[in-house]
């Protein structure tokens, strides 16, 4: 509650970027990002390749360290060197383009691992929770299979269940369907849609424009290392204000 500044609706943002900068060597990727993500919001992040979309998500769960500004996640400032980073990681579930399931563990073990080792819950409780989550993503019959025995779409759904097992406050998705064959994209988007409807806070980088338009509360367009435009999907897709956003949309909507 200590960091409430000028909230439009009086709530504290779950995530707040304040003049966030990030370099990779000489490359200046994030150049003063300011943004707030409120609880329950579903944000879709768009922008040209290499603009820093993944970097933004990775900063939120501290896979990348910011090197300027403040990034406040659930009340903890990641710009502070003494921040309890492991706690933040548990609160922010991340789903990767490559799924990154642990191949030496069964599907159920993948989902049970973090709750047991990070939260310290019992094996039985973790199993019960794991099975419930696998059911939620429609894949409980594969609980004892190994990741390699699953299709890409199934693997990604397990990855989502694995993140959910930590009861995260926000789910971050970095191009979750980009490595999938077209016929498997839908099953993953369906799971994500279900999460959004259940009120999960989400930040999604995706190229699925129809999905973005349908599910997002707000679209962020990133360019030049900053949030270049922010608005509802209707505003953004039908009536973009920025020249660069128009240019971007004309390119991606052509095909």
């Amino acid at each position: 509650m200590s960091i409430s500044v000028d909230q439009p609706n009086g709530r504290t943002p779950l995530i707040e970027f304040r003049e966030v900068h990030k370099h990779f060597g000489k490359l200046h990727i994030l150049r003063g990002v300011n943004e707030k993500i409120m609880e329950g919001e579903v944000i879709v992040i768009l922008g040209p390749s290499g603009c820093g979309k993944s970097t933004m998500l990775r900063c939120i769960n501290h896979l990348e360290k910011i090197d300027g500004g403040d990034l406040i996640v659930d009340g903890i400032n990641l710009g502070d060197p003494h921040a309890n980073v492991n706690r933040i990681r548990g609160e922010t579930g991340m789903v990767f383009q490559q799924f990154n399931l642990f191949p030496h563990l069964s599907v159920l073990q993948n989902v049970m691992l973090a709750p047991m080792k990070v939260r310290g819950i019992s094996k039985d409780a973790a199993r019960e929770k794991g099975l419930k989550l696998l059911k939620r993503v429609g894949i409980e019959e594969k609980a004892d299979a190994f990741p390699i025995q699953l299709s890409g779409g199934q693997q990604q759904r397990v990855a989502i269940a694995r993140s959910l097992a930590m009861d995260p406050k926000i789910m971050l998705f970095d191009e979750p369907t980009s490595a999938l064959d077209p016929e498997m994209i839908r099953e993953v988007l369906d799971v994500m849609r279900g999460l959004a409807q259940a009120g999960m806070t989400m930040a999604i980088v995706t190229h699925e424009m129809a999905f973005a338009r349908e599910v997002a509360n707000r679209v962020l367009f990133i360019d030049g290392g900053k949030v270049c435009e922010s608005g509802t999907p209707a505003e953004f897709f039908d009536n973009p204000k920025e020249e660069r956003a128009k240019d971007f949309l004309s390119k991606i909507l052509k095909h």
Binding site: R89, G90, M94, L113, V118
Partner: peptide
């Protein structure tokens, strides 16, 4: 071992 393995583990909150 692909980088993503460690990143996935860390992002789940494992030390």
């Amino acid at each position: 071992i692909p980088r993503g393995q460690g990143e996935a583990a860390r992002s789940l909150g494992l030390s």
